[in-house]
Amino acid sequence: MTPKKFLVVDDSTTMRRIVANSLKAIGYNDFVEAGDGREALTKLDSDTAINFIITDWNMPEVSGLELVRSIRSNDKYGKLPILMVTTRGLKEDILEALQAKVNNYVVKPFTPQILREKIDQILASI
């Protein structure tokens, strides 16, 4: 699978820019952004080109974890790969995210190399 379009979900504009810049640095130039889970779901409903999701956990309205659960229960885009990028690095957090069926997990602060590694691992596994 080749990622056509990324959806970058984070309430921090700084982090959205950093993720976007990192994606550009590793050769992915097509992405859209959302400031929280609710906005992300709206974008997923309207933009069928999105085929890879990178989401933060702690966000207002709909959190990253709630977003993952909503996506996984959706017939239309339930199988899209999801990479969670978050400050939460406790074991129970990681297990909770895995239980919600994220494909992989990155703890902030991250480097573009880590991002590339996790994206590649996800792509290789689906």
Binding site: N58, R88, K91, V106
Partner: peptide, 19 residues
């Protein structure tokens, strides 16, 4: 729920290794 009270700026790879 919009923040992580345990958020730390930690450049070590310890947490990512656990992940």
């Amino acid at each position: 729920g919009t923040f992580n009270e345990n958020a730390r700026y930690d450049r070590s790879t310890e947490k990512q290794d656990l992940v």
